[in-house]
Design a binder for these strands. Structure first.
Lengths: 345, 345
DNA sequence: CTGAAAGCGCTAACAT
DNA sequence: ATGTTAGCGCTTTCAG
């Protein structure tokens, strides 16, 4: 079945294509009767204009690309939802590109999104979370952001300025640690994440600083890295529990790690939070699914996506916007933390 | 900054655009030296061909639309991942369109995807899960599937045949109920989902049939509908627990409902599984996060996405494919079910 | 209010 | 091996 075009419509209506285009776009007045005729024919053939042709000439695609590591981690779908909901009514559609944090895949997608002429790009994870990112990977993003508005979410790249929106992860971690300290904990560990990853490093720094600020010492052997998964949480908690001296509370890099940590702790016969307090981070769906429910740090993932696309939209419209928008995280108290009742020797 | 085109490249290389096109696509031999020259210039300007123009003429966009209710429900990201991973290397990019199961939004996206000339569409949830879907909503899908390959995942539409891939939900539910029966349960309830939704109805039918087949009676008041959320699971379990006669085991429409059910049961002082066995469905990340871990039915969500796009791809290539591919679900035994030790009067 | 014609950036015959 | 040219389907001056 041959695809029908404005020409077919025009011919049948005995008008020129420009008239058809005018009723399609409402770009100029068209006589009521001819308009209705055209509309009828359009209806009859279920004609829909080819967005490619339109975009080719208008130089806008109403299309946004979102690059993120893993849609399977509940944090990211929330960001996506926030973004999509904010821009759906404006007619934007989203390319979802997942990278597993692999910079090769990031590069590929960056390139594809440019070819596809997306109006804007949202970038999360991967290289923008590396504590020191290779210059050529940075340059790639610099280059593309000269042509297409790019907003970095919860990350940054060295030696250049980008538009970005992020939650204050330092503050978030600080909130968590302080909460634990306020509950009387003095022996606190930190587990999960990857050393050299900004999300991890920032949180660990906040952890150390907050401990010091409260006059507490901490043990480096209680800062344990691995990855951001549930399995990492399990592995690292197991390590912790096999130590001679154990903390009475643990901060985790994210909710996933907390889940693993809690499961292992319970397997080892500990009660949470009575025998050990555990803090999550992200406030994903997991945190309210668990028993006990996770005390965690909310970074307002939905809001993050929403604000990011608002910035993108302003950029697309050539409006001025703040270079960096910071969202305040907040502590969400639930059941996995409680007053320290363990006496540590 | 003016966007550069094949013409710019051609001019600088002193060749015609077709030669540039040929090195871009490898569609015909080009002299080594001119090819290298062109490649150099391309590199120099970081030229990338405009995919819109290319697609306009080639009548293919290497683009797939996926329409689903809620990317925030862990089941869907898994399907998405399966699909993306299977087709990424082939150069396809995905539009993710979430609908909240709202048929208006489905219609909008269907229309948008057609305008954008996607090469194929994956459809999940919403209208294709309604036990009787309005004819015009069906017609819409029929119309679009005449123009664009469409694959329905875990659903169907009446009075027409579509390409579809689904897990055998009847079998899945049966597996779950039989598991409970084999554990000695005779008083079993079913909670969650929405009446009139095929996912729900099929499972409830399987539930009833399996009970009968085993010579067990069941109480209609133990079949409780509401929604697919954690909250529904809570509400419905609460209802169940306030009844004079309570079941010793409960099948839930999905993992979300199970989570809610378990949380409420525990709040009411029940131990899971000792005092009550609870079955999930979907085998999402939640099922291994919980304590106790959920016994659930896996429908191989990743596989589902993978197979769906394979069918799509075959359809795009004009190959023959089976109208309906059925994937076998399987029981995943974990910790939320056990031998019946409750004596019910 | 309407039409003619140019052109968005590319590919693909058809020549050479 | 390379150039010329005609579109793909649409929007948009510019005339009338």
């Amino acid at each position: 079945m041959q695809n029908i075009t404005v020409y077919d419509i025009a011919r049948e209506a005995n008008v020129s294509v420009s008239t058809v285009s005018r009723v399609l776009n409402g770009t100029a007045p068209v006589k009521e009767s001819t308009r209705n005729l055209i509309l009828e024919i359009i209806e009859k053939y279920q004609f829909q204009p080819n967005a490619l042709a339109r975009s080719l000439i208008k130089k806008e695609t109403k299309t946004i690309g979102i690059i993120l590591p893993d849609i399977t981690n509940p944090f990211f779908p929330e960001v996506f939802s926030g973004a999509e909901n904010a821009l759906r009514e404006a007619g934007y559609t989203f390319f979802l590109c997942t990278t597993a944090g692999d910079s090769r895949r990031e590069s590929e997608y960056l390139s594809i999104l440019r070819e596809r002429q997306v109006d804007g790009i949202l970038f999360l994870g991967g290289r923008i979370n590396r504590s020191n990112c290779e210059p050529d990977l940075v340059q790639e993003v610099v280059d593309i952001s000269k042509r297409i508005p790019v907003v970095l979410i919860n990350g940054d790249l060295p030696n250049h300025t980008f538009y970005r929106v992020s939650t204050d992860e330092y503050l978030g971690a600080q909130l968590g640690v302080q909460h634990l300290i306020d509950l009387g904990h003095e022996n606190i560990g930190f587990i999960g994440g990857r050393n050299g990853t900004s999300t991890t490093d920032v949180k660990v720094n906040a952890f150390r600083d907050t401990m010091r600020k409260n006059g507490l010492s901490f043990r480096e052997e209680w800062v344990l890295y691995d990855d951001f998964t549930i399995t990492s949480g399990k592995i690292l908690m197991e390590k912790l529990l096999n130590m001679y001296c154990k903390p009475s509370a643990v901060c985790c890099v994210n909710d996933f790690a907390s889940v693993g940590a809690i499961k292992t702790a319970i397997k080892y016969g500990l009660r949470i939070p009575e025998d050990m307090s555990i803090m999550g981070y992200d406030d994903t769906i997991l945190s309210t699914s668990m028993i006990p429910e996770l005390t965690t740090i909310s970074q307002n993932s939905v809001e993050l996506g929403k604000i990011a696309v608002e910035i993108l939209r302003a950029l697309i419209n050539g409006e001025e916007v703040a270079q960096h928008t910071i969202i305040q995280p907040k502590l969400v108290r639930r059941q996995s933390t409680s007053i320290n009742c363990v006496h540590h020797r």
